[in-house]
Design a protein around this nucleic acid. Structure first.
Length: 495
RNA sequence: GGCGUUGUGGCCGAGUGGCUAGGCAGAGGUCUGCAAAACCUUCUACAGCGGUUCGAAUCCGCUCAACGCCUCCA
């Protein structure tokens, strides 16, 4: 028997059996990118991990509403809640409209999700589209006495909240320690305590993005958008909230405080955090300057890269580790992943066109048992907190059987039609629909045409006209015509 | 300084009390016009030191090393 889906919950720090609030529906919220520059490979890992979660939940039959936001305002330069909004700053630097920046990098992000074969979320809300709701939540928190206004800015009163609730339960922090270790930065005097965070910030005169509010012109704090959009689309309590491990504190901790403060209940049942992609053992991040942009990877144009690596190679590389482990980026690992990926995808091509052949061989119980165990192990792997690495291992075991059937080393009859079909659907489902790996055709088909034309020329020279006709027909069927000209043999697109 | 995580064979990377992970690389074989693929067999492991246990890579303690969060970050 395959056991039920279990998820590691960052809140309880345990693996828990997944029980949706209202089956078969599942609400899942993932913190999306801040669109002030290109997303890098580390960001991609997180979104890819949750794409697999989304796909697997759907595969299990759940009706998933997957919300992934676009942060297009409210992300300050540092958590002192001073400094400048990232979008505004970039807009000023590039002499562009803030929304032009947002559009540019949102487009880039969307392109990448397609390149990596990720499904779009059900809803992709933006922070600027929910200013009204953010003002409302801020007002509610003010009304409840959990926030205070100073000079047109509104801050969340963490100490007061912590009297009745537990601030720090997600990240395992103690409020007293945080109060002590907080850094005293300039003009932080507006806050009662250093750990208080902004719900609404007054816009300085040069701040481009600003909205009217009961407290004057300003813009929302970073943490607010996720609380607002999560509850708006998924309810006051929903099933899964995901994001990178580096968002656990303070971002997700603040989200909990805001929601609990506003609605009096925990917003999320299962918190999931993906671990970091590292380079030479160090976290890949924009601020450390060691991040790879996806296109640098695809072109190989980066000092740390020996050669280019394709999107699916990269995806396979990432899926070969568990989302909760750090994954170290290296050329050797990528090269190994490329071979593994090709092996797996060749298997997909093969199994798709394989049909059961009744070869009259007797059923072999031992082999059937073996195969059944592998198939079960594939499901168990995914049910065990989406263990894609383990699932891939099992798929390779399954692939051995597929290849053996193909080469005749294993008789179809030994398995029987039913087991064969099970192998086929399992392999296809897992590779194509769950891990979502796809074939990468050589981008330049012209080389193939040239090779065919060469053979055509030889056949023509040998007056092997049967062959000549065959090649011409084959090319024509693919929209290519061969032209025998006085000056030589050429090819062209059929008009 | 506080909180936390990790250390698996040549490389990557699952596993977490007794049962083959898997991929890449290496060796041998089957197959084969050549080459490749495929299949079969196979060599290198669980940071170190102690402890618990019939039994530990897996649990506990210590040591060493690396990393993450506490500043924006997926």
């Amino acid at each position: 028997m395959v056991e039920k889906l279990r998820i590691y919950n960052s809140l309880s720090k345990k693996k828990e059996t997944f029980e949706p609030l209202e089956p078969p529906f599942v609400g899942m919220y993932v913190c999306g990118p801040t669109v002030y520059s290109d997303v890098h490979l580390g960001n991609i890992r997180t979104f890819m991990s949750f794409d697999v979660v989304y796909r697997y939940l759907t595969y299990l039959g759940y009706k998933v509403r997957y919300v992934r936001n676009i942060t297009d305002v409210g992300h300050l330069e540092n958590d002192a809640d001073e400094g400048e909004d990232k979008i505004s700053k970039k807009a000023r630097l590039e002499h562009l409209e803030p929304m032009e920046i947002v559009q540019k990098y949102t487009n880039g992000f969307h392109e990448l999700t397609q390149i990596f074969n990720m499904k779009p979320p059900s809803i992709e809300p933006s922070a600027t589209g929910h200013i009204v709701e953010q003002i409302e939540m801020t007002q509610t928190l003010l009304d409840k006495g959990l926030a205070y206004e100073v000079n047109g800015s509104v801050y969340f009163d963490v100490a007061k909240y912590d009297k009745n609730h537990h601030y720090g339960k997600l990240s395992g922090r103690k409020i007293e320690e945080m109060m002590e270790s907080g850094r005293a930065l300039a003009s932080q005097d507006e806050k009662r305590n250093t750990i208080d965070f902004a719900l609404w910030k007054k816009a300085s005169p040069e701040h481009i993005m600003r909205w009217s509010s009961p407290w004057g012109k300003g813009f929302p704090g970073w943490h607010l958008e996720c609380s607002v959009m999560g509850t708006k689309y998924l309810g006051q309590t929903f099933d899964i909230h995901g994001g990178g491990l580096d968002l656990q504190f303070p971002h997700h901790e603040c989200e909990i405080a805001q929601s609990v403060g506003t609605y009096g209940k925990d917003p999320v049942r299962y918190w999931m955090h993906t671990n970091m992609l590292t380079v030479n053992g160090q976290k890949m991040s924009k601020s450390l300057g060691n991040s790879f942009l996806p296109h640098e990877l695809f072109t190989g144009n980066h000092p740390l890269l020996d050669e280019p690596y394709s999107p699916m190679t990269t995806k396979f590389f990432m899926l070969q580790s568990h989302y909760s482990s750090t994954l170290d980026f290296s050329n050797d690992a990528l090269k190994a992943a490329r071979k593994g990926y090709k092996k797996m995808i060749n298997g997909l091509r093969l199994v798709k066109q394989m049909q059961y052949v009744d070869d009259g061989a007797p059923q072999d119980e031992r082999t059937i048992q073996q195969v059944t165990n592998i198939i079960e192990a594939c499901h168990s792997a995914m049910n065990d907190d989406f263990n894609t690495a383990l699932a891939i291992g099992q798929l390779f075991n399954l692939l051995k059987k597929i290849n053996s059937l193909h080469t005749g080393q294993l008789a179809f009859g030994a398995l029987g039609a039913e087991v064969f079909e099970e192998i086929k659907t399992t392999y296809i489902d897992f590779v194509e629909n769950i891990l979502a790996l796809k074939e990468e055709a050589p981008s330049d088909y012209k080389g193939l045409v040239e090779a065919m034309v060469e053979i055509y020329k030889e056949a023509k020279f040998k007056k092997d006209f049967d062959r000549v006709d065959k090649i011409r027909a084959g090319l024509k069927a693919n929209g290519i015509i061969v032209k025998d000209m006085k000056t030589g043999i050429e090819w062209a697109y059929e008009e």
